[in-house]
């Protein structure tokens, strides 16, 4: 059952991501993306990472996608009516590359240490928190500054012009 859910969710995540490749309307794409992200959240949970799963739902599916939709709204994007999505010019090479990338990453991934009979553990928020504010304290601080920097950058860029 666990495995079934996992693989099923994985198929959903992948399918939704694949749909983004072919949908025409940005909003549809955003919705597919949300689907994919939510499926991922489930996967995280299944892989014993409840905190990340929660954050995924809140942060990604919530905040970021709203941002996307907001920008779409501002930009007022809508495709010309009923137009079929055409293959982009020079699609062959990128397609080939993507295929090759899939193959090579698969080759790499299947080199991973084999895990025969591992026990499933859930690493809870506490362990994660300890790690974050123990070993990775400096990184957290820097990440905070990074967010500040992003804020500054966005504020500057969004200003219309200097008085």
């Amino acid at each position: 059952m666990y495995k079934l859910i996992f693989y099923l969710t994985a198929v959903i995540a992948i399918g939704a991501a694949g749909a983004i490749l072919i949908v025409r309307h940005p909003v549809h794409a955003a919705l597919y993306l949300i689907a994919s992200l939510l499926a991922l959240a489930l996967l995280f949970f299944l892989l014993g990472a409840p905190l990340v799963a929660a954050l995924q739902v809140i942060l990604y599916a919530g905040a970021i996608m709203v941002l996307f939709l907001f920008v779409m709204m501002v930009m007022d994007l809508r495709p010309a009516s009923n137009e079929r999505l055409a293959l982009p010019k020079g699609w062959r090479v990128p397609t080939l590359l993507v295929a090759a990338l899939a193959v090579e990453l698969a080759v790499v991934v299947f080199q991973a240490p084999l895990s025969g009979d591992e026990i499933w553990v859930s690493v809870g928020p506490k362990a994660v928190g300890q790690s974050l504010f123990g070993t990775y304290l400096i990184a957290v601080e820097v990440a905070a500054i990074l967010l500040l920097a992003a804020l500054v950058a966005v504020l500057y860029l969004s200003r219309r012009s200097r008085p």
């Binding site: 590359l97 993507v98 090759a100 990338l101 090579e104 790499v108």
Partner: peptide
């Protein structure tokens, strides 16, 4: 982006 991907593939492939 294609170029970047190509490079990645080439390096990986070269090594693998």
């Amino acid at each position: 982006a294609v170029s970047v991907t190509t490079g990645t593939l080439a390096l990986l492939g070269f090594w693998l």
